[in-house]
Nucleic acid binder design. Sequence first.
DNA 1: ACGAAGATGTCCT
DNA 2: GGACATCTTCGTC
Length: 194
Amino acid sequence: MSALADLLAGPVQEVAPRLLGAVVRHGPVAVRLTEVEAYDGADDPASHAFRGRTRRNQVMFGPAGHLYCYLSHGIHVCGNVSVGPEGRASGVLLRAGEVVDGIDVVRELRPGVADRDLARGPGRLGRALGLRLDLDGTDLTTGAVTVTPGEPPPETSCGPRTGVRHAADRAWRFWSTGDPTVSPYRRHAHANGL
DNA sequence: ACGAAGATGTCCT
DNA sequence: GGACATCTTCGTC
């Protein structure tokens, strides 16, 4: 049992906050997570897996500890960690973090962007880490992208998830309290409550 | 085969 | 605060 597998054991709502402080690495770039969201498959109307298995979301139906990548608005590649046993399509969206290695590379990639904004938001985080759709399904213990448990932040907060239309009031977003790299909350224009 | 929506970011007023 | 870029995925016809 790897350290990551231990960290990912249990219900996704409990796993997600434990991922705060973990380090995601792809090549020279590493990001320490400061903000994540839990998505709970068939029990969660906001999840990509709510309506069952499709080609896009199949990774979340597989074993825990794999990377689920999806394309958002034709531009942004966002990353998730699959959670839960096979058949339960839970996942944790990597929403924001602090670049802790390879910051020169990311600065060069994003001229004029403040350091704290380099991975502030799921699209920016994906871009900073060089996530691509072909990395979908990567084993996060042995693959090109890895997640390593890290020191949890001193204080964490939770609240509703950002930008989801359905189940917009579930407090399944977790972040490092007061951290400048946490993205701003935006409620969906036509949000449905629970 | 077609169309609408989207777990966003950026630029505009 | 609001428009819009951009293209894949999925549901429906």
